[in-house]
Nucleic acid binder design. Structure first.
Length: 826
RNA sequence: GCCGGGGUGGCGAAAUGGCAGACGCAACGGACUUAAAAUCCGUCGGGCAUCCCCCGUGUGGGUUCGAGUCCCACCCCCGGCACCA
């Protein structure tokens, strides 16, 4: 297949770009800035096709904007801390440091062999002290601000990774990395107080107009902010040992309070234990046993269980109706949300309805649809409407009733508006070695003491043994653990947990603005100039992890005075997956395509072109060897076309456009149309596939013209120049070679994007489709912009039109200028 | 169940309410060749009486001179969330 010498060409230009620092970021020129960023990879050792797609997309955007005279910041780095390095150490005895550095080296080579235009002078790797020092520094700033705390709680423990996980990292009860089942352990851990920002994290989703709806919805759901009312239900009689004389519930539907005919608390609600202590309730004991069993079985399996429950033998008073209602313990109320107790409104909540049916409890309808006179009592009605059958609030709309309820009861402190959030604070400590040491010591006298900023960095010791058996390896290194307290000088012990690697990636884009800064994580000025990231590109799998943490970081850093922006990424493109045979590539399925092999067989330009052409970037892409060959064929065709004509264009003069022949005008117009479309499609929605299709179309036509028509060398040269510049954002190596063979001494990568010659853009002839009753019947070629009368005469004199309207009445004629003429007949 | 995104040739995909299927892949026919590969030219939604006409963008309705595109109802696929009160 090797039709053009891509091996030599690609190496040659990669070396030239590197040597001449062609992609070095310039801040000085007065141009507009643009920050284009692809999610930096974990240095696993090899790029996979997902990376290739991600970085190719970003590269086209970067190259295009460079040609459009933007100051482009397009950096790359390494998310270099994390488990695989440590696992490799345990398994093969390689130090994580060596393993990681070697992997970085290889992946950097691979990225360069793809011709991605990075400014490598800004490279960062999170595992080096010059980076993680600032993790520690930021930790201390967060600490001072009261956004870091240590707490003992039940946390997600991954037995495989031997470390704890944040909530959002335990996906459906499984570890996000290794997929093993998570256990709950009671441990003391460090947290970032991300919940302090939950309101803003939700609210600001609205300003992220350049984010996919999908991602915003996922974040909104994850944060799970809901506004409702807390209502206290008085206990009819005191429960021994229970702290209050009421049970409080959270509801978003306080308008249905009148329909609350029972109350349900979680099996884990404290009052359950009190009742168990004071009364011997066989049924309850039995239920709790079952509940525990079920919980272990279904602990993390998803799905809705049958609703079970048992009466606690107590009643509370519905504050609106003053009726005594029974209280149940059940398996369907979550202790972790709201107060762990809910009011049971079977008429207007499907879950309560199920439970009421099960227990034969009264069902009282208190909401009717606004457009009906009565309630539909055949099933649950969960929508809002008009309140009926309820003291004080009957006749009110749901929204008004909610307000009235709070008004009525706030004085007695029975009801108040509140917000509930599902989001939990971010657990950031990890019992692992290969991460950023947490800059805290435990002093015998002073307790928890944060280090001083000038004691940073806390260097990760290298003389470590990796046994893989429990506990952080750091805790075994005495010279690391034993320190003096920075306050009182007494003996102290260092924190041996390290930070979640998502801390590293929460601010790396800021470091890219100022990667060599030795006195601060980044300078305010530089961050002000470059931020926010104008285009962020990566996989959707980070929708609620990395992207949420980063948003949180930016808001905190803004409040600390380091930033003036509210959001880190103004535009986000989540690219689709690369599939083979309709499935995600994976070792177990044996359907992995190694980028390295594709590069060796077809070259980088082909790989890039195929990946960009096969589907628009946001859609999944089906890998096709034949498609790759097609891309290669196209490049070969361009290569051949150029070399078939190189002799005639080599020493031509500059083009003078005044006396072009019709054939020349035709092809020159086509060039300008192609240029316009290619640029628009890149800019609009990154629809590179249609951009490339336009280039292919042009190539077909140009090749036809060169064979069958007379086009003067000056124009041929001009066309090759323009065409090659456009193509170069997709296939930079081959175009660089053609550019140089054309006799240019500069680089195509440094050219400006060509201007569209609007004098040669519009056709003066157009084709008008003639429809009769909306069906295509004929076409006519006419000069553009003629009057309707002239067109009508031509249309009506068409033989085909005559044939179709013969014997019928013409009711109406519609003319859309230069496009279509529709005749309505009967 | 809820939320989001989709259903267009054999396949990947194109189409500001105005000629459905651009571009590519596969397939088929032809040229070149002793032959093959490569390359080049052509055909390529279905039906059919093959320069004609009919049907055709998940299904059924609607709006419109005109609907893949807008509206209503439904079916199916993919992704996310899932007893969140």
């Amino acid at each position: 297949m090797g039709l053009y010498p891509f091996e030599t060409i690609e190496k040659k230009w990669q070396a030239t770009w590197k040597e001449k620092k062609v992609f070095k970021t310039e801040e000085e020129k007065g141009n507009k800035k643009i920050f284009i960023l692809e999610m930096f990879p974990y240095p696993s050792g090899n790029l996979h096709m997902g990376h290739v797609r991600n970085y190719t997309i970003g590269d086209v955007v970067a190259r295009y904007h460079r040609m459009k005279s933007y100051n482009v910041l397009h950096p790359m780095g390494w998310d270099a801390f994390g488990m695989p390095a440590e696992n490799a150490a345990i398994k093969y005895g390689v130090h994580p440091y060596e393993w990681t550095v070697k992997n970085i080296e290889n992946m950097k080579r691979q990225l360069n062999s793809l011709g991605i235009s990075y400014d490598w002078d800004r490279e960062v790797a999170t595992c080096f002290p010059d980076y993680y020092k600032w993790n520690q520094w930021l930790f201390l700033q967060f600490y001072k601000k009261g956004l870091v705390y240590k707490k003992k709680s039940k946390v997600n423990w991954c037995p495989e990774c031997k470390t704890v996980l944040a909530n959002e990292q335990a996906e459906e009860g499984r570890c996000w990395r290794c997929k093993s089942e998570v256990e709950l352990k009671e441990l003391e851990q460090w947290f970032f107080k991300i919940t302090d920002y939950s309101d803003e994290l939700v609210k600001d989703l609205d300003i992220l107009r350049g984010w996919p709806q999908k991602v915003k919805v996922m974040q909104r759901n994850w944060i799970g902010l809901s506004e409702g009312v807390m209502i206290k239900f008085k206990l009819s009689e005191k429960v021994e040992g229970y702290k209050d004389d009421f049970i409080e519930v959270f509801t978003t539907r306080s308008d249905t309070l009148g329909g609350a005919t029972f109350m349900v608390v979680s099996a884990e609600h404290p009052i359950v234990k009190n009742i168990l202590d004071s009364k011997n309730n066989e049924e309850l004991i039995e239920f709790l046993k079952d509940y525990e069993k079920e919980k272990i079985q279904n602990r993390f399996t998803v799905g809705v269980n049958d609703k079970k429950g048992v009466s606690l033998g107590i009643t509370v008073v519905n504050p609106l109706t003053n009726e005594d209602i029974q209280v149940f313990a059940s398996n369907y109320v979550l202790m972790s949300y709201g107060t762990g107790a809910v009011m049971g409104v079977p008429a207007h909540d499907a879950r309560d309805f199920d439970f009421a049916k099960e227990k034969n409890l009264p069902i009282k309808y208190v909401i009717k649809p606004e457009d009906k006179d009565t309630c539909d009592e055949s099933s649950v009605y969960e929508d809002e409407g008009i309140v009926v059958n309820s003291p004080h609030i009957s006749g009110l709309k749901s929204s008004d009733a909610k307000k009235k309820i709070v008004e009525m009861f706030q004085e007695e402190k029975i009801a108040k508006f509140t917000k509930q959030i599902r989001l939990r604070d971010w657990l950031i400590s990890r019992q692992r070695y290969w991460g950023t040491p947490i800059p805290i010591v435990y002093c015998e006298k002073c307790g928890i003491v944060p280090l001083n900023e000038n004691d940073l960095p806390v260097i990760l010791p290298t003389n470590v043994e990796f046994t893989g058996t429990g506990g952080s390896p750091l805790s075994n290194i005495d010279e690391f653990v034993n320190v003096k307290c920075p306050i009182c000088g007494s003996n102290a012990k260092r924190e041996t947990d390290t930070m979640d690697t998502f801390v590293d990636s929460s601010w790396y884009y800021l470091r890219f603005c100022d990667p060599k800064n030795e006195t601060e994580p980044f300078s305010k000025d530089k961050a002000k100039y470059w931020m926010s990231v104008d285009q962020y590109i990566g996989g959707v799998e980070h929708a609620v992890l990395h992207l949420l943490y980063s948003r949180f970081f930016v808001k905190v850093l803004r409040d600390l005075g380091f930033l003036e922006i509210d959001e880190p990424f103004s535009n986000l493109l989540t690219q689709g997956m690369v599939l083979k045979d309709g499935e995600k590539m994976s070792k177990s399925k044996g359907n992995v395509i190694d980028p390295e092999e594709i590069l060796a067989t077809y070259g980088a330009d082909t790989a890039r072109l195929f990946i960009l052409f096969a589907a628009p970037p946001e859609k999944d892409l089906e890998w096709s060897e034949q498609g790759v060959e097609g891309a290669h064929r196209f490049l070969s065709r361009v290569w051949r076309l150029f070399h078939d004509n190189i002799d005639i264009i080599k020493d031509t003069k500059a083009l003078v456009l005044d006396d072009l022949t019709k054939d020349e005008v035709d092809i020159y117009k086509k060039l300008n149309k192609t240029l316009l479309k290619a640029g628009n499609d890149i800019e609009d929605k990154f629809h590179f596939n249609t951009s490339i299709a336009a280039l292919m179309e042009f190539t077909n036509e140009f090749s036809f013209s060169l064979r069958n028509k007379k086009i003067r060398p000056e124009l041929v040269k001009k066309i090759f120049e323009t065409f090659t510049i456009i193509l170069s954002v997709f296939a930079p190596h081959m175009c660089e070679e053609i550019w140089s063979e054309m006799g240019n001494n500069d680089l195509i990568s440094s050219q400006n994007w060509p201007e569209v010659d609007t004098n040669y853009l519009e056709d003066d002839i157009c084709v008008i489709a003639i429809q009769i009753n909306g069906k295509l019947r004929d076409k006519i070629m006419v000069e553009k912009d003629q009057t309707e009368d002239v067109i009508e005469d031509m249309v009506m004199s068409s033989l085909r039109v005559k044939k179709f309207i013969e014997g019928k009445d013409v009711l109406k004629k519609i003319y859309v200028k230069n496009k279509i003429f529709n005749i309505v007949v009967k």
